[in-house]
Amino acid sequence: MSLYRSVSKFCLTIRQPNNYCRNLSNKNTFKEVAIPVPWGEIRGKWWGPTESRPILILHGWQDNCGSFDRLMPLLNNEVGYLAIDLPGHGYSSRLPAGIPYTITEYLSTIKYVEKYLGWPRVALMGHSLGSAVSFTYTMIYPDKVDFLVCIDGAKPLVPKVTKNRLTRALDAFLKNSDLVIENREPPSYTIEEMKRIIHQPNDGAVDIDVAHYLMERNIAPSKTQPGKYYFTRDPRLKAEAFTYITQEEILYTVRNMKCPIFVAKAKGSHYFEQKENFYEVLDVLKKNIADFEFNYIEGTHNVHLNNPEAELSSLIDTFISKHNLIDRSVSTGIKEDIVVEEIDLLRNKI
């Protein structure tokens, strides 16, 4: 069975006037978009209404915007949602060779998207890394964010001090940079092997039967091993970042945050740093923000993909309905020049 046919039962593509949309439910569809940035383009899926400013949504580390495919159709379909692939992920352009990925590039991406689409403000939703980026953006631009939704992640992480951490980080960056500079094909796998690779991290955080949602924008056919595929995300993403914001600076800066904030913590997930850091920040938010909401939810780190219908979607929907008060209708809708008219599914992996 071909790669396209093996996954087509999960992801049906339908023709609609002037654009291709993927129809994942009877409630909602999306448009594929490409937004120009200085190093290339940021790709994404614009769900729901396109005549007004959507909520901007950021995925987790080495994932892509497909991780929200099961959550989006469950949310209020009178609100727009723009889920993007961060640089080096999914269909978005990689950074130039020799350049590492840091939170600075991700924060800049939000700014470039805002500027190109003419948004005066932004509402943010994120998962894991996307939560940390969204949270950090809200910390440094507290007057520019309508509200913030964080799924199993929030504050920027502060790594533990370990022996040779910086040495390992630099060596990993240089090793994976060679793949990019030399344009070498990464290791290849069968489809089933790739599903298991996606499933394994974080104690099986992504269920096997939903792994294809992440694979669609993340794999390509091998040119050297027929019948196998490789991951197209930038291998430089594997390297640990050098730069971090200290816990002290985070605690100082979060006192400026003022918008409504929703945080969901999956009970079956790790903290990825000393958990005391996480709860220290939550305590500050509880004291300083009247509309702060924190929920423990059943599930793993990727609960938004595995089983969003259980409780997460209703909690987020209620929060958005309560706080979606800013007028989004003034010259902030989709631009026709960013709509990707056709999605080449075979070229784009699945």
Rank of each mutant, 00 (worst) to 15 (best):
E248P: 00
I197S: 07
K223P: 03
G130S: 02
I250Q: 10
D171C: 13
D207V: 00
D209I: 07
M194W: 05
A220M: 12
H212Y: 15
D203V: 03
E193F: 09
T162I: 15
V133Y: 00
V149H: 09
R168E: 07
C259V: 08
P221A: 10
G118I: 09
R236Q: 10
L124R: 04
G153H: 14
L251V: 02
F262L: 14
R233I: 05
E193G: 07
P186W: 03
L214A: 01
I181G: 00
V145S: 07
W119Q: 01
A172N: 14
K144H: 10
L124F: 06
E249K: 11
A132L: 08
A205R: 08
C259Y: 11
N176D: 14
T138I: 05
M257H: 05
R184A: 03
R165K: 14
D234Q: 11
L237H: 15
N256C: 01
A172D: 12
L251R: 08
F147G: 08
Y252W: 01
P186H: 05
T243C: 10
T162Y: 10
I140Y: 14
Y137K: 01
S177Y: 06
E240G: 12
Q225T: 08
N202D: 14
G204N: 08
V122I: 15
C150L: 13
K144R: 15
V180K: 02
P142Y: 04
P221T: 03
A205F: 08
L214C: 06
L237I: 13
T136L: 13
V210A: 06
F242Y: 13
N256S: 13
A172C: 15
V180M: 06
N256D: 13
P186A: 10
L251E: 14
N202V: 11
D234G: 11
F147S: 12
T246M: 06
S222H: 00
Y252L: 11
Q200L: 14
K238P: 00
A239E: 13
C150V: 11
F173W: 10
S131Y: 01
W119H: 07
F242N: 12
P186G: 12
K160T: 10
P142N: 02
I198C: 06
V210G: 04
N183V: 00
F135S: 04
I151V: 15
L174D: 02
E193C: 03
L170V: 15
F262A: 04
T224N: 14
Y141V: 01
A154T: 05
V180D: 06
R196P: 00
K195R: 15
S222V: 01
L166Y: 14
V158Y: 06
L214T: 00
V254C: 07
D143E: 14
T190F: 08
F147M: 10
A239L: 12
V161F: 08
D207F: 15
E248R: 01
K155C: 12
L251Q: 11
P221Y: 03
Y189K: 01
V158W: 03
V206W: 03
I261V: 15
D207C: 09
P221F: 02
I250V: 14
E193L: 09
T253A: 09
Y213H: 13
L237T: 03
R196S: 14
N218P: 00
T162K: 12
L124G: 07
P159Q: 11
K258F: 05
D143M: 05
V263W: 04
D209P: 00
K160M: 13
H199V: 10
I245W: 11
L124N: 03
V149A: 06
I261Y: 04
